[in-house]
């Protein structure tokens, strides 16, 4: 077992991990943060996307030990004081979800995309979401929601 310290949603955790423990399982099973979903489990679908030091990553393809010392934000960490994060609110307003399974990963990918100023127009948003699959194929409203928050020009 390896000692690992990570700050998740502004709470510091000191954990003892097996090297093979995947970050997504650490989040879901040890920290009970089940908002992050496991989808394909092959780093294709993006359902498990979280922010690691502010950048979107697929938590099914990271070992927990690789996140030692990192700051992690999951979908549970976005809302503050009972107020939805602007991206969550925009997904709500635009009906940017159907079954909802991809939604936590879509929202986290969108937060990273907007933070990196890579959502200037709808083509950029579509390209920036290439690592997130929605099998309800609800992409149109997802793009619209992100475009609203990003103030996309076209």
């Amino acid at each position: 077992m390896h000692p690992v310290t990570m700050t998740v949603n502004e709470v510091r955790h000191e954990l003892e991990l097996e090297p093979r423990d995947l970050l997504v399982h650490v989040l879901r099973e040890q920290l009970s943060l089940t908002g992050t979903n496991v989808g394909c489990d092959t780093s294709s679908c993006g359902a498990c996307t979280v922010l690691l030091d502010g950048q979107s990553v697929k938590s099914c393809t990271l070992l927990g030990v690789q996140a030692d010392g990192a700051t992690i934000t999951t979908i549970e960490g976005l809302a503050t004081g009972g107020e939805l994060h602007p991206v969550q609110q925009a997904f709500h307003d635009h009906h940017a979800l159907q079954c909802g399974y991809c939604t936590p990963g879509m929202v986290m990918a969108a937060v990273s995309l907007i933070g990196n100023r890579e959502a200037g127009d709808r083509d950029s948003i579509r390209a920036g979401l290439e690592g997130n699959l929605c099998r309800c194929t609800g992409y149109h409203n997802i793009v619209e929601a992100i475009a609203e928050v990003a103030g996309s020009t076209s």
Binding site: G46, T49, L52, V57, T61, L62, L113, N132
Partner: peptide, 9 residues
């Protein structure tokens, strides 16, 4: 290469 999440790591 890959997608944004892959390129971040």
């Amino acid at each position: 290469v890959g997608d944004p999440q892959v390129r971040h790591r």
